[in-house]
Nucleic acid binder design. Structure first.
Length: 267
DNA sequence: TGCTGAGACCGTCACGTACA
DNA sequence: TGTACGTGACGGTCTCAGCA
């Protein structure tokens, strides 16, 4: 599953695919490393590079997706919604004196879906659309073709087929509903069609069956919705932690630079 | 050991939205 | 316009820690 990768290496399933990173076209970057098809980008500027090219203009930009802007305007290259984590001892801030030669960007983190700093033209509706949608229960049923053969079924639901759930029918082939069981122990009912393909005819019974189906689907939907919500909250919490660390690092750096400045001033 | 409050989880309902 | 879906709200149940 592609998407946001936080500092712990966990993936944000809510984030959409990262924009293409065309770093090689940027003059200031002479070395690039894309890590394992995720959107972790490792950039290292050579020590001999002229530091003036990457002079940071502003670190925290309100209403800007990228927290770091450079004179070379890296932001559009990295794409909207990036948070760049910078690890010590390499500096975010380059001093005019050039005391800090290398800028090392450890992580480029996609935060699009969990980003609460959207521009005004992005409605909550669009935000919701950015949430990755698991195939609906209906689609799962359709994919199963309405007829579920006895025995185990494997459904690839992960990115690139990474996670494969094994399903096993506990009473398939019998009349009525079959219980499909996830390998992890979750289970749900799948209504089995009558041989004619219709569920049953008959007014009240049909209504009741429809209602049952609706409740079943809604139950699944609610479960899925809660799962997404939990992931979303987790991503937000991760992001808070990342930004707090970043803030702390910047404060420390500012402090040291101030000290350096005062020291030079007194000499 | 029984009671209780908090938190997590779940099912259901209602409502808004997208889509055919 | 009907239908399906996603999600907030609400109430019920269960678990667990703290306490008398």
């Amino acid at each position: 599953m592609d998407g946001m990768v936080d500092e712990n290496g966990t993936v944000d399933p809510l984030a959409p695919s990262p924009p293409p990173v065309a770093i090689s076209s940027v003059g200031v970057v002479t070395q690039q490393q894309l890590v394992a098809s995720t959107n972790i980008v490792h950039l290292t500027l050579p020590a001999s590079n002229n530091h003036a090219q990457t002079q940071v203009q502003s670190v925290i930009q309100p209403n800007q997706q990228s927290v770091i802007q450079t004179a070379a305007n890296i932001q559009p290259v990295l794409g909207k919604g990036n948070v760049i984590l910078v690890s010590k001892p390499n500096s975010v801030i380059q001093t005019p004196q050039g005391s800090l030669h290398a800028l090392q960007v450890i992580n480029v983190v996609e935060t699009t879906a969990s980003d609460d700093s959207y521009s005004d033209d992005e409605s909550p509706k669009k935000r919701r659309d950015l949430l990755t949608r698991r195939p609906s229960y209906r689609k799962i049923l359709n994919d199963l073709g309405g007829v579920i053969p006895a025995g185990a079924i494997q459904i690839s639901s992960g990115e690139g087929g990474q996670s494969i759930h094994t399903l096993s029918m506990t009473n398939s082939g019998t009349a009525g509903a079959a219980i499909v069981q996830y390998a992890q122990g979750q289970e749900f009912f799948v209504p089995v069609m009558a041989q004619s393909g219709n569920i049953t005819s008959g007014g009240g019974e049909d209504q009741a069956r429809k209602r049952e189906m609706r409740l079943l689907k809604n139950r699944e939907a609610a479960r899925e919705c809660r799962r997404k919500k939990k992931e979303y909250i987790k991503c937000l919490e991760n992001r808070v932690a990342v930004l707090e660390n970043q803030n702390k690092a910047l404060i420390d750096e500012l402090k040291s630079l101030k000290e350096l400045y005062c020291k030079q001033k007194t000499e």
